[in-house]
């Protein structure tokens, strides 16, 4: 039982990171129609922004985290300006290939800057543990779940209670009608990219202490985030959360109870089953047009 609780918490923690990456991915996809293949690299950049501020610059934690997130917001804005805006009139396929290209560029830029040697990103609660029902669980893992819950609540408030958030949903649903309502559509599109980058940044900062900070960490995260969105329902925010947690749990529990060699097989196997049996995912699109 103690083992199970420990595994449950670390599965939820890693699942939270996947969920945040998947949410960022879904926000960009629904607002702009772009499948962002650089989504995993966004998380990598988040982790390395943390490495730069905490390890290299040795800033005190609160300052370092704020600085890293500011870098991420800037990065999102830059991605909007340099990648999305110039390509937005091209076909969606062109933009998608563009995100692949930029993803590869980002990974190699990180390789040039930080080298191939993995870093260890410290946690603000480094080495601390809590006893819970006979299990010893890491405070960091619990913190990750807590921070993710707060982020999700914040997103819910943003999208349901603020004009900006409702505007972002409107842009996602009908961009031309949103223009006719007087919304500053480009500003809202930029905001979706910034929000996605911030979520990836938080995910990266929390993932760093659980994994090693390695410049090639982006791809596995992207694959897991894709699997999460497919299982949860492509384009659905609740789906991204449920899918992310599900992938994280299946990975950790599968590795421990079945075999660590098969941990990826389990999550991707489930994804394939979903694609075959229920391609709309758990939260299949509820919205429909009634002409």
């Amino acid at each position: 039982m103690a083992d199970f609780i420990q595994l449950l918490v670390s599965g939820l923690a890693i699942g939270s990171v996947y969920a945040l990456a998947a949410i960022g991915f879904v926000i960009v996809y629904s607002a702009t129609g772009v499948v962002n293949f650089a989504a995993g690299q966004f998380v990598m950049v988040g982790t390395f922004a943390g490495v730069a501020m905490l390890v290299d610059a040795q800033l005190p934690a609160p300052l370092a985290y704020s600085a890293a997130l500011a870098v991420m917001a800037l990065f999102g804005a830059l991605f909007f300006l340099v990648v999305y805006l110039p390509l937005r009139k091209s076909s969606v396929v062109t933009i998608i290939i563009g995100t692949v290209a930029i993803g590869i560029t980002m990974q190699n830029a990180a390789l040039l800057t930080f080298g191939s040697w993995p870093f260890r990103l410290p946690s603000p609660v480094e080495g601390r543990t809590l006893a819970l029902g006979g299990a010893i669980i890491s405070t960091h893992a619990l913190g990750v779940v807590g921070v993710t819950a707060i982020m999700v609540a914040g997103l819910w408030l943003l999208f349901n209670k603020t004009t900006v958030g409702v505007g972002m949903r409107a842009v996602a649903q009908d961009i031309q009608a949103a223009r006719l309502m007087g919304l500053k559509v480009n500003r809202l599109l930029a905001l979706s990219w910034i929000l996605a980058a911030l979520l990836a940044g938080v995910a990266g900062l929390m993932l760093g202490p659980m994994w090693f900070a390695d410049v090639s960490m982006g791809d596995p995260i992207a694959l897991k985030a894709f699997a999460a969105t497919i299982i949860g329902g492509f384009g659905s925010l609740p789906g991204a959360i449920v899918g992310g947690l599900f992938v994280g749990l299946s990975e950790v529990l599968g590795a421990s109870y079945i075999s660590s060699a098969y941990k990826d097989l389990i999550s991707f196997g489930i994804m394939i089953v979903f694609l075959l049996v229920r391609p709309q995912g758990v939260f299949g699109e509820k919205i429909q047009d009634r002409g």
Partner: peptide, 23 residues
Amino acid sequence: QAPEGRRIFPGLTVEENLSLATV
């Protein structure tokens, strides 16, 4: 403008549709 085909935001409530136009 009330556009052709109405172009209501399908996933927003009636009140959200209305209040959005006041921005």
